[in-house]
Simulated assay, not measured.
Amino acid sequence: MKFKIIFFKLKHIYYIILAFVFVVLFAIFLISKKSAETFNIFTKNKVISNYDVTGDGSKDNIYIKINNNRYSLEVKSKNKTYQLTPSPTLNSLGNYTNYSPLKLILTDVSRDNITEIFTQSSEDNTHLQHLFIWDKNKFKDIFHTTNNIIGFIDIHNNKTPKIISTNFNNNSLDFSNYILIKDKIKPYYANYPSNFIGKDTIEAFIKYIQTLSYYGNSKPNSLFHESGKIACSSVIDKLASENRKYVFQDGSFSDSDYNKNGEISDVKWVLNFKSTSNLINEDCKNTSIKLFLKSIGDSKSQFYFKIYSINILSN
């Protein structure tokens, strides 16, 4: 029996090493992409770890605290503690209520490997949004509004990440568009269509949930993707059976996938409602509805982004 001995030339060894390095780097990219996704936290007192918000290469701890029913935030990085102080223009991080807790959204919209800190909360029926960035040796509040929805697009592709702030008012959403450049927030003009990232779908869905009846409403089937229609209808039935009134509070969204042309194909929305029992007025809580939308059909059609999954989270 003869054995074949294979000899590699030096250049072949180089090719193998380069291929191995490429695979490792690609794997790291996928992991970092996954970890950079936006998320929401609903809490009273909690510590959030595993994010570098000071740019020193180490993971920091973010503390959400409540003092005299008012929210405060601080970051502990190595042996130092930093307070997150809101701008005098909108000098509050909100008051605690069980039906509209503070939401903390962490994501890197500047692509400098330093995570930005977004907050959503309310005070005396006024909604509050803040964006904190690390500025050399302190946190700076560079963006603050009284809108109640914050969103992010082009986070995971090769385009410039964008921030969209909007307010749900009179059953409609009006987008204000921004980009973060060199630690400054700058508006940009965009003539987005009414169905952009599911805008018309979300407007109709919020309106539907706020009129949801224990005795049953006709289902908003035109909003549902064929692949998730049965499951989505089942979740709606569950919400209706709880016999509660739902009033929209705030929300967030982020694109999550793209088609072969680099256009947004999937979007995740989180909508938060004040949920009050129709039988016991004192029974009041936060109900969060997580929606996954997928583009389908003609991009110029109404409800181009349709809901294919609904998850309910209650505090």
Rank of each mutant, 00 (worst) to 15 (best):
N68V: 05
N147S: 09
F20I: 14
I142W: 07
A27T: 15
A204W: 03
D266S: 11
A240N: 03
N191L: 08
N45S: 14
K4W: 04
Y192Q: 02
L10W: 10
N147D: 14
K4N: 10
N272A: 13
K238G: 00
Y71Q: 07
L291Y: 05
S233H: 03
G262H: 08
S256T: 15
R244H: 07
K290S: 10
H156W: 04
N191S: 12
A204I: 05
N45C: 09
Y304M: 01
E282H: 07
T38W: 07
I179D: 00
G297D: 14
S233M: 13
I64Y: 06
F205C: 07
E37Y: 13
P161A: 04
K2N: 12
K294R: 15
K182G: 09
N40D: 15
S233Q: 14
L10M: 11
T43P: 02
N45E: 15
S92G: 10
L84F: 13
N147L: 09
K44V: 09
M1A: 10
N171K: 15
Y208H: 11
S49H: 03
I181W: 12
C284Y: 02
D257R: 10
T126K: 14
L25P: 00
Y99N: 14
K159I: 08
E203T: 03
K290I: 13
S277P: 01
A240H: 04
T115Y: 07
K159T: 07
A36D: 13
D60A: 07
D60E: 07
V235I: 14
T107Q: 14
N69R: 15
S176Y: 12
Y208A: 07
C232T: 06
N158Y: 05
K229D: 09
K140F: 07
T276D: 09
R244C: 08
T43W: 01
S122N: 14
I289L: 12
K268H: 08
D183V: 05
N61M: 13
A204Y: 08
S213Q: 02
D112M: 07
T160G: 01
D112A: 09
L173M: 15
F168M: 12
D154A: 03
I155W: 00
T85K: 13
F273V: 04
K59V: 05
I48C: 06
N79S: 14
S77P: 06
Y82C: 10
D108R: 13
W134G: 02
F224T: 04
K306N: 05
D56T: 12
T115P: 04
F29N: 15
S265Q: 13
L104M: 14
K46W: 06
V270E: 10
I164K: 04
K162P: 03
V267P: 01
S275H: 01
L128Y: 02
L223V: 00
W134R: 05
C284N: 11
K207F: 07
D266P: 03
K140C: 03
N217C: 01
I163Y: 02
Y246Q: 03
S314H: 01
E37C: 02
P161C: 03
S110V: 00
S222W: 03
S121H: 01
D124Y: 10
L84D: 01
F253W: 12
W134D: 04
F42W: 11
N125L: 06
D266A: 11
I13V: 15
N125A: 09
T81I: 15
H130R: 09
I264F: 08
C232K: 04
I310R: 05
S49N: 12
G228V: 01
I153N: 11
I236H: 02
Y208K: 12
